[in-house]
Design a protein around this nucleic acid. Structure first.
Ligand SMILES: [Mn+2]
Ligand SMILES: [Mn+2]
Ligand SMILES: [Mn+2]
Ligand SMILES: [Mn+2]
Lengths: 218, 218
DNA sequence: AAATTAATTTAGTCTTGCCTAAAAAATATA
DNA sequence: TATATTTTTTAGGCAAGACTAAATTAATTT
C-alpha cells in the first residue's frame, strides 16, 4: 500500500520522464513537488527499495514497468474524477484539479472501474488529456500547438498544455472551448500576436496563449 | 485544516457521546479507533488546544459546538458518499463503508454540496442513518428495535444498528430490506427466536438479529 | 587540466501520529 | 477506611516525511 507522498512522487516522475527520456533529475522532481532536493533523494531510495523506480546515486531516476503502471493508475483516477466533477457536479474545468489531487488517492479498484462505467468510459479529461485504461495503457495524440499552424490553416482545439486556472478562465472568457475549430487568419509581425477565426467571430491572441493550445490540423 | 486522524477522533467522540452524555472516556475512544489510550490522550490535548473538545485530565471529554459541527460535517460526507456508491455506482450496502471512510476526508465544501444536489438531497444513507444538513443539523428518529415489538405488531424497517458486512449480507440473503414491513408473528420461549412475516413469506430470526433492526411501529 | 559552479547526497533536526512500559489518579472492594 | 484494581497520563521511543546546512560529486568554464 503506497502513501500519498509515494504516489505523488511517482506521478511527478512519470510526467517529467515524458520530456526526459534518459532520466529524471532530483531537482526537477523537487521543483514539481514543491519540495526540496533532500526530501526527493530520500523518497527515491524508498521507491527504489520497492522496485518502483531504478535509481543510482547522481544518475537520475526512471520508473520501472511496475512504477509506471502505478503512476498511470493514479493519473487514471485523477482524470476520471475530473470528468465526474465537470460532467456530473457542474464544476468548471478550472475548478477541478485540486479536488482531483485528493480524490486520485482513494484506494478501490472497484470504485475506479464503476466510476469509469458511470461516466460512460470517457477517453479524455476536461483539459483534453487522455485517460489511461485499467491496464495502464494510454493513447497519446501528436502534440501540435496552435502557434505551429501556418496562416490559412485550421485546427481543432483538443487540449491545453498549461491548465492553470488563469489560462482556462481566459479561454472561457473568449469562448474558446474544447472541440472548437480555429483558423489562423493572420500573424502580426510586430508582437507576434495571432488573429484567429472562431465560428463567426475573429479575435487576436498572443503567441504565448497560442503555444498552450493543442490542435489537430484539419 | 484538520488531519485525517483529528477528524477520525472527532467522529469517534461524536458517536460515543450519543450514549454517554456526561463525557467520553479515553479507553472507549481508543477501542473505537483501534488504537491505544496514550495515543488518544495526546490527541485530546491537541483537539482541546484547537477548541474542538473540552478536556480535563481524568475527566473524560466532550465536543464543543465547533467540534460537534466539524464531526457532523465529516459524517455528512461519509453518508453522502455511501449514497452515491449505492445509488450511482452499483455498490451493495455492505461494500460502501470502507470506501466512505476514505472519501469522508476530501476537503471541498462545494464538492459536498454539489454531491448532495446530484443525489437529490437524500435524507438517509444506505443503512438508514440520517444525513446531517450543511449547517450540522441532524434529524434523529426514535430508535425502536424489532425485538421491542409485541406479538401481532408490525414495524417498518428503517435502519440497522450493527452495519457489519456479515449482518448486512445476512439480511440480503433473507430479503429483508430497508422499507419492508415486518410483522411479529410469534416469539419462541425456548431460544427467544422470533417468527416474522414479510410480504407473503414467514421466517424465523434470532433475538440478536432482531435487536439490530430499527423499526417504526405501524 | 584546474578551478569554479551547480547538482546531489548526507547529516542532523523537527513534527505528526503512533507505540510500550511505568507512574499516578480514580474507582471499586474488602 | 485501607487495599486492590482499573483507568488514565507521563515518559521515552520509533517511523514517515518534511526541512536546513554541510559535504560530496558532477559539470562547466577558464
Ligand atoms: Mn488535473
Ligand atoms: Mn496528488
Ligand atoms: Mn458507514
Ligand atoms: Mn475516517
Amino acid at each position: 500500500m503506497l502513501s500519498y507522498s509515494e504516489e505523488n512522487h511517482l506521478k511527478a516522475i512519470f510526467h517529467l520522464s515524458l520530456n526526459n527520456e534518459s532520466g529524471v533529475s532530483t531537482n526537477s522532481i523537487a521543483s514539481k513537488m514543491n519540495s526540496k532536493a533532500p526530501s526527493v533523494t530520500e523518497m527515491l531510495k524508498k521507491l527504489s527499495e520497492k522496485n518502483l523506480v531504478v535509481y543510482k546515486k547522481y544518475q537520475g531516476v526512471l520508473l520501472t514497468d511496475f512504477g509506471r503502471k502505478t503512476a498511470l493508475s493514479v493519473i487514471r483516477k485523477h482524470r476520471l474524477w475530473e470528468v465526474f466533477l465537470v460532467k456530473k457536479l457542474n464544476f468548471k474545468w478550472d475548478e477541478v484539479h485540486d479536488i482531483a489531487e485528493q480524490l486520485e488517492h482513494i484506494k478501490s479498484e472497484k470504485l475506479t472501474n464503476e466510476l469509469d462505467k458511470f461516466l460512460d468510459y470517457p477517453t479524455h479529461d476536461p483539459h483534453g488529456d487522455p485517460i489511461p485504461n485499467p491496464a495502464g495503457f494510454i493513447k497519446y495524440t501528436a502534440k501540435l500547438v496552435l502557434s505551429d499552424l501556418l496562416i490559412g490553416e485550421t485546427g481543432k482545439f483538443f487540449g491545453v498544455k498549461d491548465s492553470s486556472s488563469s489560462f482556462l478562465k481566459y479561454l472561457d472568457k473568449r469562448e474558446i472551448s474544447l472541440g472548437s475549430n480555429i483558423k489562423v487568419l493572420h500573424k502580426e509581425e510586430f508582437d507576434e500576436s495571432i488573429q484567429i477565426g472562431l465560428d463567426d467571430t475573429n479575435l487576436s491572441i498572443s503567441v504565448k496563449s497560442a503555444a498552450n493550445i493543442y490542435v489537430t490540423k484539419l
